[in-house]
């Protein structure tokens, strides 16, 4: 029985398919590596709202770098106002209406203020950071911590770290109160 032809055929097929056993190179990671998370200060979140907070816009006008500031606003300014892996978010002045303040607006992300001009958003925004001793934001996200979410009302007590003509206003938060500020009725 002459099996030379089929044997040669099968051998050729095997030779073509065998390189499938080659070791594949490891695929590159799809996302850059992140450092281990750092813990937030235990006394960062307070249960009573500090007295006399300014609006974000007023605080930007009143305080300069190194000065203490107490200001109140709500989380927003972009579709994702929190930074993953960094203790940082954007706070907006109540004077600037979010999309949800318009009952006719069906925007699914009303905290991005997409109905407002970019210049107005910048003028009414402040960046809040929780930093380490070197002044760098802690490597931990704030989203969901102590109820922090887009459009959450927040009162921040902190120090102005950066302010410039482009509208950048960065505050290093020392205390934060999350929730609506209840105004006591005059006696």
């Amino acid at each position: 029985m002459n099996l030379a032809a089929p044997t040669a055929l099968l051998a050729l097929a095997a030779a073509l398919a065998l390189p499938a056993c080659e070791k594949k190179p490891a695929p590159p990671d799809s996302a850059p590596k992140a450092a281990p998370a750092a813990a937030l200060p235990g006394d960062l979140f307070i249960t009573a709202a500090p007295a006399g907070p300014l609006g974000v816009k007023a605080a930007k006008q009143a305080a300069g770098p190194g000065q203490k500031v107490v200001m109140r606003g709500r989380v927003g300014g972009s579709v994702e106002p929190f930074v993953d892996g960094r203790a940082m978010f954007t706070l907006m002045d109540f004077a600037l209406p979010a999309c949800s303040d318009n009952p006719d607006d069906a925007c699914e992300t009303p905290w991005d203020y997409c109905c407002e001009k970019r210049a107005d958003i910048t003028a009414n925004a402040a960046t809040i950071q929780v930093t380490d001793a070197s002044g760098a934001p802690l490597k931990v996200g704030l989203k969901g911590v102590s109820g922090l979410a887009p459009l959450s009302e927040v009162v921040v007590v902190g120090t102005v770290a950066q302010k410039d003509d482009s509208g950048v206003f960065v505050v290093r938060a020392e205390k934060m109160f999350v929730g609506p500020v209840v105004k006591t009725a005059p006696k």
Binding site: P28, S30, P32, K33, A34, G85, M88, R118, S166, V168
Partner: peptide, 25 residues
């Protein structure tokens, strides 16, 4: 630096209207 640092820069500079995205993504 990590991606989060660049993302933080982009979110801090609202005036520049930036988005940071890993090249692989």
């Amino acid at each position: 630096a990590e991606f989060a640092d660049i993302d933080a820069f982009a979110r801090q500079r609202l005036d520049l209207e930036l988005t940071a995205i890993p090249e692989t993504r």
